[in-house]
Simulated scan of single mutants.
Amino acid sequence: MTTRQVLYLRRELRIGPTDGSERLDRALARLLPEFSRSCIQRWIEAGQILVDGRPCRSRDPVFGGESISITAELTPVDEHRPQAITLNIVYEDPHLLVIHKPAGLVVHPAAGNPDGTLQNALLHHDPALATLPRAGIVHRLDKETSGLMVVARTLEAHCALVEQLRQRLVYREYRALVQGALVAGGRIEAPIGRHPTQRTRMAVVSHGRPAVTHYRVLESLPGHTFLAVRLETGRTHQIRVHLAHIHHPLVGDQTYGARPRPPRGASPQLIAALQHFPRQALHAIRLGLIHPQRGREMQWEIPLAADLAALLDLLRREQAHGMADA
């Protein structure tokens, strides 16, 4: 009989300033985004989380400044089964995996996608990841966003990468094709939170969490602009929401975009390509971090996704034939 290895999460945290009181479980869910709220609630109920040295209930209020001590047993991710899904592994060592996620692959199992996800694929590739929160996944890409993601393979690496993300030390650069003409780069600083009436969407809202996105113009194309985008923070749907907020939504974004706007004089081929582009035109092209065990900076870059590259080539060809940029 084999003995299951027991891993413990040990953290010392402090609740930041809040607007009035906030439930303990909700405050901790913000501080520990790599864990589900139900998991945090289990730890609170089991007395594995102390607030100023005392056990509390999930619904107890916090007001900011409280000291949080966590000594929690991590349970294996056994509710999600391993599946033999092909992974495009860019880098691998005993501590990290860097994955090139294709568009269309969901990161975590959820109600609408119970399997067939990146997490299922990771559990097949390395069964030991079942002992880590979310199978080692420390950040995510939307289903229809392609590109680079890092996955931790040990608890120590997981904690180190989460801390790097918290301190904004992880470098994430994207390529984005947006509607309209942008003539210069810029910085978007606007808080993001749940949409007040459409709960499946995010929005720029006054009570949202701080969010900062940087962008620069790489290429001006007919009726569109090709951007390099860098995340300073990592809110849900951040790039999509911020670009839509400045009235330059991503091509193909069915949630935050407008209808396709082919430029004047567009060929039937370009009109069809813009109208039927199957996803948001967003690709995580570059990733940089400090190796959690070796302590040195590492960076990876991958080619542009084939579908986005093909659409750019089509825009360039038509621009070369004298199409209007407006």
Rank of each mutant, 00 (worst) to 15 (best):
P102N: 07
R264Q: 15
R316P: 05
E189S: 13
Q167N: 13
T213G: 12
R81D: 09
P61L: 02
V229R: 07
L282G: 05
D126R: 09
E79K: 14
H276Q: 14
E156N: 11
A284F: 07
G147K: 03
L287W: 02
T131D: 13
E66N: 06
A284C: 12
E66W: 07
M323Q: 13
T131V: 08
P133Q: 01
E22S: 12
A128V: 06
R30C: 08
H108P: 07
R59W: 01
I188T: 10
G47N: 11
I239L: 10
E73H: 01
G20W: 08
E301F: 01
D313N: 14
R10F: 00
V241S: 01
E34K: 00
I302C: 06
R4N: 01
L123M: 11
A46Y: 01
Q280H: 15
T154C: 06
W43G: 06
V150F: 04
L161D: 02
D142S: 06
D93P: 13
Y174V: 12
A121M: 12
R81E: 14
R261T: 15
E79A: 15
R259D: 13
I15W: 03
G104T: 06
R240A: 07
Y256V: 03
S206L: 11
R194H: 06
L221H: 03
L141S: 03
E297T: 13
R26F: 02
V107G: 02
P263L: 05
R14W: 02
A306V: 10
T225Y: 11
T236C: 03
H108I: 00
P82M: 08
S206E: 15
